[in-house]
């Protein structure tokens, strides 16, 4: 069994390389089919012909397509993603600046989503076809069905404007902006490091609502998968064995059946974490959250393709990375794959 691991890893690496290549081709193609003229976007509408031609050549647009692709790959491999037209900064630098806000939000959300979804999924499986199962199923389908940008607005309307329980838009109150030195760009960490507990409280107050909404919508998926994994396990003979040994129902469920789905859950949670990035694009717009999603959409609207394609590439890379991590965890934690 041990001998199979090496070719497995080689196969895995090969698959990742192919996916990466595909990712590059895809972003390249999307970048090329756009109707907006990339030269015009840089030089502006009333540039002279010479200036235009100059930039045209600088961008390599006079070369054959395969050469352009070659240059694109070379740029990507050397981490040169060009400059954003809007901010005038290197795109990569921009993304590094906005990504922590999104990661903070997504992490907060996945903690809520998994913390809610896993126990509910187990409860639904254990009570299959009885009322808790039905209630949980409807609740999770609701989470799956809600347009998150809309729920976000309604929640703002109720909990911020109406009840005043939480902070409104942004990562913290306007009042505190600039008070905390930016070390990691994770506001919760930065403010705690600086001992600025007012800022920390304000940050928690602001993150709780968008994170809960994102968490709820991702818990829908987690609940459903937990339920179906759990049902598979509860029908297994070893569950009967555990009961015969004299373990209580609860211990059997949590120690034995749940123990067997932990590994699968890791994959599910990793996938859910990835798709939180998607929800983040919409929720960041609603909550004026200065993160990756907002950066992406604002560049989309002005047609800054350099920035957009890099964002897409980054998301693709994050997804590949998450898949890889969950695969590795699978290998580490499941004795059958060792």
């Amino acid at each position: 069994m041990r001998r199979r691991v090496i070719p497995d890893i080689a196969g895995q690496a090969g698959a990742i390389l192919v996916t990466l290549a595909g990712l590059l081709i895809l972003t390249f193609v999307i970048g090329r089919i756009m109707p907006t003229d990339p030269v015009r976007a840089i030089v502006g509408e009333d540039a002279t012909r010479e200036v235009y031609e100059n930039v045209y050549r600088q961008l390599g647009l006079d070369r054959p397509v395969w050469q352009q692709f070659f240059f694109y790959v070379r740029d990507v491999l050397t981490f040169d993603f060009g400059t954003s037209i809007r901010t005038g900064q290197p795109v990569l630098q921009d993304i590094a600046r906005v990504l922590p806000a999104t990661v903070e939000l997504a992490t907060f959300a996945i903690v809520i989503g998994a913390g809610l979804g896993i126990p509910l999924g187990v409860a639904a499986a254990v009570n299959k076809d009885r009322w808790p199962d039905h209630v949980i199923r409807i609740a999770s389908l609701m989470g799956h069905s809600m347009p998150i940008f809309w729920t976000g607005m309604i929640a703002l309307l109720i909990f911020y404007a109406g009840l005043g329980w939480v902070g409104g838009s942004g990562r913290m109150s306007q009042f505190y902006i600039g008070l905390v030195p930016e070390r990691t760009n994770f506001l919760l960490i930065d403010s705690a490091l600086a001992g600025q507990w007012d800022v920390f409280r304000s940050a928690v107050n602001h993150i709780i609502l968008p994170a809960s909404l994102l968490g709820y919508s991702s818990s829908a998926y987690i609940t459903r998968m937990t339920r179906s994994f759990m049902l598979d396990q509860l029908n297994q003979e070893y569950v009967t064995t555990a009961r015969v040994k004299g373990l209580s129902r609860n211990k059997t469920i949590w120690r034995h059946a749940f123990g067997n789905i932990k590994v699968q859950l890791v994959t599910i949670v990793a996938l859910a974490y990835g798709s939180l990035l998607e929800g983040a694009v919409l929720i960041e717009t609603v909550f004026a959250w200065p993160g990756f999603g907002q950066y992406l959409t604002s560049n989309l609207l002005i047609g800054d393709m350099n920035a957009v394609m890099t964002c897409v590439l980054v998301v693709g890379l994050i997804f590949i990375g998450l898949n890889l991590i969950s695969d590795i965890l699978y290998r580490v934690f499941d004795p059958r794959t060792r």
């Binding site: 996916t19 595909g22 089919i33 989309l300 693709g316």
Partner: peptide, 20 residues
Amino acid sequence: DIFLSFPSLILSLAFVAALG
């Protein structure tokens, strides 16, 4: 798999951005 490795909204966003 390549298409699946993107969240669908982000990929749609990229396509729409390119197509207008």
